[in-house]
């Protein structure tokens, strides 16, 4: 049945989205009629229940299935590195490309390595380099925008680039994607190994994409 429904996924997502907002506006306009409020509540909670049961958001109704995917004995994630003119590289500080952080940046790395065409990779490479350069400039100058100053602490507290670190690098010219394979110790108290394998280089300066096997 789920498969049958899946065929209509796009229609369902758009329909629910539009109906939710139209229905909510109607409920606000006619909120003095208690029956309409009840209808809105029934619609909202039914959707929330379904979304929670199935584990897929039907925007703007979301679920909170967190850390719900079981861990395997071996886990993979991806790192995006930026490379300077001398070939030196540094792991991307994803403050340069908000709002993605941690696992989400890893997912993009995975898509770059596994899914995208070369044109799409180049497009993403240019995007990363453009914003990495801007972010680097901001770090080196110490300038922080008003928006940045207002922001609450990031929930992913990985170390940020520092001026000292960046002083060792020339201009950034390409990005690289590494695949990391984590194998846990038998008693799961530590990591037995974390292997790093270069999967992709997107050399924006030379307009070249290299897949590493």
């Amino acid at each position: 049945m789920i498969d049958a429904i899946a065929q209509f996924r796009d229609v369902i997502f758009v329909s629910v989205y539009v109906l939710f907002f139209l229905g909510s506006l109607g409920a606000l306009a006619l909120a003095n009629r208690s029956v309409l409020r009840r209808i809105w509540l029934v619609g909202f909670f039914s959707t929330l229940l379904v979304v929670t049961a199935v584990g897929m958001p039907l925007l703007p109704v979301v679920e909170m299935h967190k850390f719900a995917q079981p861990s395997e004995e071996e886990m993979t994630y991806y790192e995006i590195h930026v490379v300077d003119a001398d070939g030196q590289e540094i792991e991307l500080d994803d403050r340069a490309t908000p709002p993605l952080t941690g696992t989400r940046t890893s997912s993009v790395g995975g898509e770059l390595a596994e899914e995208y065409s070369d044109a799409e990779r180049m497009e993403m490479g240019e995007f990363y380099l453009e914003h990495v350069r801007e972010y680097r400039q901001a770090v080196e100058s110490g300038d922080r925008s008003v928006t940045e100053r207002l922001q609450p602490p990031r929930y992913v507290d990985d170390p940020a680039w520092t001026t000292d670190q960046l002083s060792e690098y020339e201009a950034f010219e390409s990005i690289r994607v590494y695949e990391r394979t984590v194998i846990y110790a038998e008693d799961d108290s530590s990591v037995e190994s974390n292997e790093k394998r270069l999967r992709l280089t997107v050399d924006v300066a030379d307009d070249e994409v290299i897949e590493h096997t």
Binding site: L49, V51, T52, A53, E63, M64, K66, F67, A68
Partner: peptide
């Protein structure tokens, strides 16, 4: 319901 989803997901 949202918190129930966190446990139910597992």
């Amino acid at each position: 319901l949202l918190y129930l989803g966190s446990a139910w997901g597992k």
